[in-house]
């Protein structure tokens, strides 16, 4: 249960090809995150899988069966929306029971499943409230509850945390990850936030302009970005990308190096001046203007005392250098 395969899936709105053709395998029980900048087609792809939009071409298989023409309700998938999309006129209990009622389940069974979902999500004491009386995090949990009672083949999440404040986002992130570990159901999660992608995913699909840039585990993407786009998108702060003469020295059009792979070191090859230093306590991020290289972000220790205007020498760890060719693809 829960294997989804996309074969040459295409989507156009009028003359505009939003998704020119995507092949993707999602295995049973996997937590897959679609990540990319806004407008990259990740939400559209999710809606195609959900059946809320028609495909222009290609095949969507769910558990080996062609589901391309099936209406959303027949695909056995559940979706959690960005706005939660709770029914404001129904109590939490009725919201969660709604899909079961639509499926015509006996009332006793409905109650059992609602109670079970409420227990898992800590919603038991809120069952008789209306969505309007709940906090953002609670609403989010109701939306998830409504999804899990159906025991779907897969869960689809469309940027579910973007309406929450920062602290709540972190804890909901953990809750969803734990939920995945408990249920072991396939989950497809759309976000523009690469931190969410890194922390939650078994497999990340990086999308850009309707195309897949790279598919892989979070660490694969981090350590072996296939191209400039993935290199720049994954990781925070961003990888430093340097082109020109410095890149040519390494036989590439562009080289990339992550902030943690540059050390402040007397006698280092790169001489620069500190522009900005951000002290996070545990770390300090320095923005350094290096002659002939450009502005670099460097992660240094929390105790470092460099300030604006100080001269500094930097040493890159050459074995961590990423090299990219003219087409933006990583060089072996």
């Amino acid at each position: 249960m829960g294997k989804i395969t996309l074969k040459q899936v295409r989507k156009s709105f009028g003359d505009v090809a939003v998704i020119p053709g995507i092949d993707l395998d999602i295995d049973e029980g996997e937590f897959v995150v679609f990540v990319g900048p806004s407008g990259c087609g990740k939400s559209t792809l999710l809606r195609l899988i959900a059946g809320l939009e028609d495909t222009t071409g290609g095949v969507i298989e769910i558990d080996g069966k062609d589901a391309t023409q099936l209406p959303p309700a027949k695909r056995g998938l559940a979706m959690v929306f960005q706005s939660y999309a709770l029914y404001p006129h129904m109590s939490v209990r009725k919201n969660i029971a709604f899909p079961l009622k639509m499926a015509g389940l006996p009332v006793a069974e409905q109650e059992k499943r609602v109670a079970n979902a409420a227990r898992i999500l800590n919603l038991t004491s809120y069952l008789d409230r209306r969505p309007g009386q709940l906090s953002g995090g609670q609403r989010q949990r109701v939306a998830i509850g409504r999804a899990i009672v159906r025991e779907p083949a897969a869960f689809l999440f469309d940027e579910p945390l973007s309406n929450l404040d920062a602290a709540l986002r972190v804890s909901m992130r953990q809750e969803i990850t734990e939920l995945h570990q408990t249920l072991k159901t396939t989950m497809i999660y759309v976000t523009h936030d690469q931190v969410e992608a890194m922390t939650m995913a078994d497999k990340i699909v990086v999308l850009n302009a309707g195309r897949i840039e790279q598919v892989g585990s979070p660490l694969e993407l981090y350590h072996h970005p296939a191209n400039l786009f993935v290199a720049g998108f994954i990781g925070s702060p961003k990888m430093n990308l340097i082109d020109g003469a410095e890149a040519a020295k390494h036989g590439a059009v562009t080289i990339g190096i992550r902030p943690e792979h540059i050390t402040v070191q007397d006698g280092g090859p790169w001489q620069g001046v500190v522009g900005l230093s951000e002290h996070l306590g545990s770390d300090t991020f320095l923005r350094v203007q290096v002659d002939g290289v450009g502005m670099l972000t460097v992660r240094a220790g929390g105790e470092i005392t460099l300030r604006h205007g100080d001269a500094v020498a930097l040493a890159p760890q050459l074995d961590k250098l990423h090299r990219f060719g003219t087409d933006g693809k990583a060089l072996a």
């Binding site: 959900a50 959303p72 309700a73 979706m79 029914y87 639509m102």
Partner: peptide
Amino acid sequence: IPGEILEAARMDGAS
């Protein structure tokens, strides 16, 4: 009325 709510109902199996 946000369209997402009607889409949610569609996902939930509502005709």
